[in-house]
């Protein structure tokens, strides 16, 4: 029971963090290695808003999400747009930006446990003898809401449909009059915003440390590889697999094995079905 509950919560947390990465890759085929950095940044911005500027917490969260989305959009517009299509440069540039942000924050003194965000809902309650705090439950609920909202957005709005079209076939979409650069910009902003959203939900559970940036990046990558790069459904399934695997190892072995488990999962996936669980098997395209 405990395993089940915490497994679900852990899985939803994972899929929330990975969502931004998967979204951007799925739509514009850009591996956003700055994903983890944006995640930490948004947490830091919220902290700044609340503690330095003295803003209302809710307002701070809104500012944090919007600011991160803008950072993502600027990153795309100013840097990535100019090197679009040169894959080596794309990878290096996003990686470099991510590192610059993370290490810049570290240098700026984002260390230790001084940087914490308060949880929205204090207190906890018991289900069948297990104490669960409200914040975790909130994460669970809002995760489900975000997934549903995103699904509806893609299915029923014009922008969403355009994004989907680009994800399927960029050239055809362009011929239909979709400005693929602008839509990629939107997807980048959206992805950054989502990672910020995940950050403000999850960060109150611990403190804001720069290492989170790397962890988030690794787990996002692990989840997206196992689920199939760019596949949202796959990402969710994969985060449940990794999420439960982590909880199980934590209960039966020890926390140290968590990292190893996700590594093993990646290697096994690559060996057995390289395109991931739900990856579209474009054999002539992705597989050599």
């Amino acid at each position: 029971m405990e395993i089940l509950l915490f497994g679900v919560i852990n899985s939803v947390t994972l899929s929330l963090t990975a969502l931004g990465f998967t979204l951007v890759y799925g739509i514009s085929r850009l591996p956003n290695f700055a994903h983890g950095a944006l995640y930490v940044t948004s947490g830091y911005i919220v902290w700044l808003c609340v503690n330095t500027l003295g803003l209302n917490y809710v307002l701070g969260i809104v500012v944090g999400i919007v600011a991160t989305a803008i950072i993502g959009a600027l990153m795309y517009r100013l840097i990535i747009l100019r090197i679009r299509g040169m894959q080596i440069s794309e990878i290096i540039a996003t990686y470099a930006i991510g590192l610059a942000i993370i290490e810049g924050l570290r240098w700026g003194g984002l260390r230790g446990s001084t940087f914490t965000l308060p949880s929205f809902l204090a207190g906890s309650f018991e289900i069948g003898g297990i104490a669960v705090d409200y914040q975790r439950l909130f994460v669970l609920g809002s995760g489900v809401v975000v997934f549903a909202a995103l699904g509806l957005f893609v299915k029923y709005t014009k922008t969403g449909l355009a994004l989907k079209a680009i994800a399927q076939d960029e050239r055809a979409a362009m011929m239909l009059g979709i400005d693929s650069d602008r839509k990629a910009l939107v997807s980048f902003a959206l992805g950054s915003g989502l990672s910020a959203f995940a950050a403000v939900l999850i960060l109150p559970l611990g403190s804001i440390v720069v290492e989170t940036g790397y962890n988030v990046l690794i787990y996002s990558i692990a989840v997206s590889i196992i689920g199939g790069l760019g596949s949202w459904g796959g990402a969710i399934v994969a985060s449940f697999i990794i999420g439960f695997a982590q909880i199980l190892t934590e209960v039966f072995l020890s926390t140290q094995y968590q990292m190893v488990i996700s590594l093993l999962a990646i290697i096994v996936t690559l060996l057995l079905k390289p395109s991931g669980i739900f990856g579209k098997q474009k054999e002539l395209d992705d597989r050599v």
């Binding site: 990878i91 690794i218 790069l229 690559l270």
Partner: peptide
């Protein structure tokens, strides 16, 4: 394991 795949897989795996 990731060599049979094209694109970003190599970068991702070596990063990890």
């Amino acid at each position: 394991p990731c060599l049979s795949l094209r694109g970003v897989y190599f970068a991702i795996v070596t990063l990890m």
